[in-house]
């Protein structure tokens, strides 16, 4: 392990260094939570029991996703992208550590800081105003594991997108595609349980589902027993596959490397 826990710890401190900024983001996410909740309530009034959710499930889902925006960075992006663009990545590549390991540790620290500063407010505000579900101790533990795996999947996806900057010189196009996929297939726009037929089946099998939909379902107690293990395994398999792909792509990037800006 060595240096990685320290990288995570310093990243946590780095991302919690500006509490006012984080507070503003938490407030924004909360306000949007209220707007989305109102839309979802109207939808579930018109179609009670849609996708197996009741109204309280839908509202809880909404505020959970608002709370997870920061930790799983659903809008995409990584600091590393800018570092590849401006050449600072030379410093990262020179360090006696693995590039992916370093940034994964950094991202875990970031996610923890984000959950603390940006996740709590939307959940509490939502719970105070709307009908809301709270999980029991076992549910909370399972949710913690699911969020951690969700962050790993999110990192895996974003790291792959970021590495494309080594080849593309400008990653904005990739970022835009990644953003649309992430918003649509993670359950951020509407819960994936309402996607009909084949689209729903496919959407629930893609890695983006592991970022938001699966942790939210775990929180809501939609998975129990072997179903719960299956849901966590689904996340874990995607996390491992993405990190393995990241490892291979890092090797290719190192070999092909052009460092921008001398």
């Amino acid at each position: 392990m060595g240096v990685y826990p320290w990288v995570a710890w310093f990243a946590f401190r780095r991302y919690t260094a500006y509490p006012l900024g984080s507070g503003a983001e938490a407030l924004t996410n909360t306000v949007f939570g209220f707007i989305r909740a109102s839309v979802l309530i109207a939808l579930w009034r018109a179609r009670p029991g849609l996708g197996g959710y009741d109204t309280a499930d839908a509202v809880t889902f909404c505020f959970l996703t608002q709370a997870l925006i920061g930790p799983v960075q659903v809008f995409g992006g990584m600091e590393l992208t800018e570092r590849i663009r401006n050449g600072d990545v030379a410093i990262d590549l020179y360090r006696p550590t693995a590039l992916q390991g370093w940034w994964l540790a950094d991202d875990l620290g970031r996610a923890a800081g984000s959950l603390l500063l940006r996740g709590v407010l939307p959940l509490v505000a939502g719970a105070l105003v709307f009908p809301f579900h709270w999980p029991g101790p076992a549910g909370a533990a399972a949710f913690t594991v699911a969020v951690t795996l969700g962050v790993l999947v999110s990192f895996g996806l974003r790291y792959l997108v970021t590495l494309c900057s080594f080849w593309l010189h400008d990653g904005r196009g990739m970022d835009a595609v990644a953003l649309v996929l992430s918003l649509f297939f993670s359950g951020m726009t509407v819960p994936l349980v309402v996607f009909p037929g084949l689209l729903g089946t496919v959407a629930r099998g893609l890695p983006w589902a592991a970022q938001i939909q699966v942790p939210a379902d775990v929180y809501l107690g939609k998975h129990t027993g072997t179903g719960l293990l299956g849901a966590l395994a689904f996340q874990a398999v995607w996390a491992m596959a993405l990190l393995a792909a990241g490892h291979v792509l890092t090797g290719m990037a190192r070999r092909k490397l052009v460092i921008h800006g001398g």
Partner: peptide
């Protein structure tokens, strides 16, 4: 975003 001392501590770990 961190004090110089912290960076140097992390480098000791690195």
């Amino acid at each position: 975003d961190l004090p110089l001392r912290d960076s140097l501590t992390l480098i000791r770990r690195l």
